[in-house]
Design a binder for these strands. Sequence first.
DNA 1: ACGAAATTGGACTAAAATAGTCCTAATTGA
DNA 2: TCAATTAGGACTATTTTAGTCCAATTTCGT
Lengths: 155, 155
Amino acid sequence: MLRISRLTDYGTMILVHLAGQDAGLCSASDVAAGTHLALPTVQKLLKTLAKSGLVGSVRGADGGYRLTRAPEEITAAEILNVLEGPVAITECSTETHQCELEPLCQVGSAWQKINRAIRSVMEDIRLSDLRRPPTEFVLKDLRQSPVANPYSHGS
Amino acid sequence: MLRISRLTDYGTMILVHLAGQDAGLCSASDVAAGTHLALPTVQKLLKTLAKSGLVGSVRGADGGYRLTRAPEEITAAEILNVLEGPVAITECSTETHQCELEPLCQVGSAWQKINRAIRSVMEDIRLSDLRRPPTEFVLKDLRQSPVANPYSHGS
DNA sequence: ACGAAATTGGACTAAAATAGTCCTAATTGA
DNA sequence: TCAATTAGGACTATTTTAGTCCAATTTCGT
Ligand code: FES
Ligand code: FES
């Protein structure tokens, strides 16, 4: 199904959470509370993210994590890279392109082509785009049929 | 790494092989021989492909498989669909969109956006594009440095 | 100096998805 | 009837992914 792993999804949630904290430090527990994810999982992922440089860390009491760059400058491609390695839909489309079948295999460079296309899509999407904009859909509803808008009476 | 499963890769090899046989019937053993894949694996995959309608089958002695459509009319998206289900990089981007985290989760519709982008790329690539064109790279080499072409003296 | 609160690094187990094999029926042609 | 072949599915093994936990290190506050 060509899906990203659940951990990558979680990792993205964490990044989105950090993006909402404007450079303030968040401890792992803070993040766990904010995202409703299990603490050990959050700890593990934050370690990965810190090692990658995408987030910075401060040790010791009152330490924590924070983004090292603005959310607008972090691409989905980078996030995927960090959380599940470089995008490569087949073994043949890796950088260190080492496929034993290659001389025999008739499936050519098209997977690579698909791969590049996917990569470029990913590079156009930023962490800032990943935050759910809560009003977007509401506005659309209002224009097309105001009376059917479920938010119009509050609660 | 966002990769397709090995079986999908094999399945594609099989389709490419069938595409090279011009409507003639191929038994599973033929395909296994032609692709250098293990027979049981080929049998399994051909069954899947046949069930999907992408290839047709004839039972009994002298039976076999063949493509039901021209390679130009089969998209990579379809192949992926058949071999590993609909493209959906997260659980939230499935058709039957049922994610329990959704009300809490701040990661918005961007995954769906990425998903649509990938789908559309896949729909532009056809089975016929997936066949390795054996001369393509040779020609390039010839233009840039004729003497370095390893094929120029036969073998 | 001490202790509490954090990160760091990595080992470890459990669970799930994937890959691969094999067996038994049903179908067809000679 | 026999041999070749697909159909369907059960089954096992392997690999990947998820998740937990522990011991060490760093830093702040008292
Ligand atoms: S499977 Fe590796 S080159 Fe085709
Ligand atoms: S994880 Fe499902 S909506 Fe965000």
